[in-house]
């Protein structure tokens, strides 16, 4: 059993489009959506939720107004700027509060309590392409990495139970906390980028991060025909860094069409060029990693 993630430094390069199509192509697998900030995979795979589970992040501070003597200590020691004075009262900005408990420990009046905060949910669902684990973070919550870790563990657990060959993850954009949680411990990831200057720069940062984690990149260049020069630059760059180009996808209207119909493109337009290229990408990647699955 092998975990495989589809990631990209830059957002909007086609992670979910590719993941959903791979979900159709790859046979025996469990799906996971690790983009808990802006999860979109469900829009294409239409999972039916079987279990809904609350996710609690860090406890947050709350000030009991009756006990507060307005000594100002909490506001001075908070490094997260999370204590505000509103109309003369000390209150905690829940979003800014990081749950470090320092104010709780230092308050001379014992006026601060730490309370559980519901930070999101994770789900185990059924799709016509296999089981799927996904989640969503409440607005303005931190700790996305922790939720990603839970989703990954659940997906692994299901994969072992079902004797699946792969866990296929739709990753978050960027290079921060949730991406770290997605990449850590992986052997391989599919990286999707686009032939633009920002695509290239963000790819470079992501490849640095993957090197740091020891994850081998298979790079897909999406909409490669929008700039042949940049595509060439990215190809050379990836090769220089010892990664592999797994394929290139043309820009086709049918991709957007499939998206607005809410279907994976390989299902919506099986014989389109894009779909055939995605098939080839998987053949290539599977050939390279099969020994490890």
């Amino acid at each position: 059993m092998l975990e495989l993630a589809v990631v990209s430094g830059k957002g909007g390069t086609g992670k979910t489009t590719l993941t959903a199509s791979l979900a159709v192509i790859i046979k025996n697998k469990v799906l996971a959506d690790a983009d808990v900030d802006a999860p979109d995979l469900h829009l294409l795979l239409k999972p039916k939720k079987e279990t809904e589970n609350p996710f609690y992040g860090m406890k947050k501070a709350r000030i009991i107004q009756d006990k507060c003597t307005k000594c100002d200590i909490c506001r001075q020691i908070c490094r997260f700027d999370a204590i505000d004075i509103v109309r003369g009262n000390y209150i905690v900005d829940e979003v800014a509060c990081d749950g470090c408990k320092l104010c709780f420990r230092k308050c001379p009046d014992r006026a601060i309590v730490m309370e559980d905060s519901l930070s999101g949910y994770w789900y185990v669902s059924r799709t016509e392409y296999g089981p799927m684990v996904h989640g969503i973070l409440e607005v303005g919550e931190e700790n996305s990495g922790k939720l990603v870790t839970i989703i990954r563990k659940q997906a692994m657990f299901l994969a072992q139970k079902n004797n699946a060959d792969y866990v296929l993850m739709d990753g978050p954009p960027g290079i921060g906390c949730p991406v770290n949680s997605t990449l850590t411990g992986l052997k391989y990831a599919i990286v999707i980028t686009e032939p633009t200057q920002s695509g290239l720069l963000d790819l470079a940062r992501l490849l640095d991060l993957m090197e740091h984690f020891g994850v081998f990149p298979f790079v897909v260049i999406n909409k490669y025909d929008l700039s042949k020069e940049k595509t060439e630059e990215i190809r050379n760059y990836v090769m220089e860094r010892g990664g592999k180009i797994a394929g290139m996808l043309p820009f086709e209207e049918v991709v957007v069409e499939a998206l607005s119909k809410g279907e994976p493109v390989v299902k919506y337009a099986t014989s389109s060029r894009v779909s055939r290229e995605i098939q080839k990408i998987w053949q290539y990647v599977e050939g390279e990693i099969k020994g490890d699955a």
Partner: peptide, 10 residues
């Protein structure tokens, strides 16, 4: 701003 809806965006 960064993408998403979590703390960095707020």
């Amino acid at each position: 701003a960064p993408p998403g809806t979590s703390c960095p965006v707020i």
